[in-house]
C-alpha cells in the first residue's frame, strides 16, 4: 500500500517536472515530437528505477555513520551519486545496444543526455533528504520517472499541435514552450491537495 502511495504521489502530486521543475533542459529540448519524447521518457523511467535503489544502498551502507565503514562520509554523496548515475547510464547503453538494437537506435542519442538530467540526481537527493526506506525509494524512482514521462509526452503533443497556430514570431518555439509548461504546472497544482491514501484505501 505504501509503495503505491509513494508511486502515485511521485507521479502526479509531486511531479518532478511540473512541481519541482527538474529535468527541464532535456524536457524542453527533446519535446518537439511525440515519438522522440516517448523514447526519452522511457529511458528516464528506466534509469531512475535502477539508480534509485543503488544510491539508496550506497547512502545507507557506505556513507552514513551507522553503515559498514562506521565513518560519516556524507560529503562524498554528490560524487558517488553522479558516478553511479553516469556508470549506470553507460551500462544501460551497452546492454541495450547488445540486446535490442532497434531500441538502441530509438534511444541512442538520449541515453548520454540522461546523465545530466537533473531529475535523476534530484530524485536521489530528494530520497536522501526525505529519508525514504528501500521500497519507498524504488516507488519514488518509478513514480517520478512515470510522472516525467507523462509530462514530456503531454508537452510534446501540445507543441505538435501549436505549430499550426498563429503565435507571435518572437514567442515561437522556446518562449511558447515555457509559457505552456507554466500553465501545465498550474493545472497540476490542483492535484496537490489530494491525499493519495484516499485512492489506495478506498480502492
Amino acid at each position: 500500500m505504501e509503495f503505491l502511495n509513494t508511486f502515485l504521489k511521485a507521479a502526479f502530486i509531486e511531479n518532478l517536472v511540473l512541481a519541482y521543475f527538474l529535468g527541464m533542459c532535456s524536457y524542453l529540448a527533446v519535446s518537439k515530437s511525440v515519438q522522440t519524447a516517448f523514447g526519452l521518457g522511457l529511458a528516464v523511467i528506466f534509469v531512475l528505477g535502477i539508480t534509485m535503489p543503488i544510491n539508496w544502498l550506497i547512502s545507507e551502507y557506505l556513507l552514513s555513520e551507522s553503515g559498514l565503514l562506521g565513518i560519516d562520509l556524507t560529503f562524498l554523496r554528490f560524487i558517488l551519486f553522479i558516478a553511479v548515475i553516469a556508470s549506470m547510464v553507460q551500462l544501460v547503453e551497452m546492454v541495450v545496444e547488445k540486446y535490442s538494437p532497434s531500441l538502441y537506435s530509438a534511444l541512442g542519442i538520449f541515453l548520454p543526455l540522461i546523465t545530466v538530467n537533473c531529475a535523476i540526481l534530484g530524485g536521489s537527493l530528494f530520497m536522501v533528504s526525505r529519508e525514504y526506506n528501500l521500497s519507498n525509494a524504488v516507488a519514488f524512482g518509478l513514480g517520478g520517472g512515470f510522472g516525467w514521462f507523462l509530462a514530456i509526452i503531454a508537452i510534446a503533443a501540445i507543441r505538435e499541435k501549436i505549430r499550426y497556430s498563429n503565435v507571435p514570431p518572437a514567442l515561437r518555439g522556446l518562449g511558447m514552450a515555457f509559457i505552456l509548461t507554466g500553465l501545465m504546472g498550474i493545472a497540476f497544482m490542483s492535484l496537490m491537495g489530494i491525499d493519495p491514501a484516499a485512492f489506495t484505501t478506498n480502492g
Partner: peptide, 24 residues
C-alpha cells in the same frame, strides 16, 4: 508559485527576441 518563473522567463524570451530578431 514556481509556475510563475516559467511565465516570466517566457515573457523575457519574448521581449529579447522582439529586439534581437536574429534569435527568432
Amino acid at each position: 508559485l514556481p509556475a510563475s518563473a516559467m511565465f516570466i522567463i517566457g515573457i523575457m524570451i519574448w521581449i529579447q527576441r522582439s529586439y534581437n530578431t536574429k534569435l527568432v
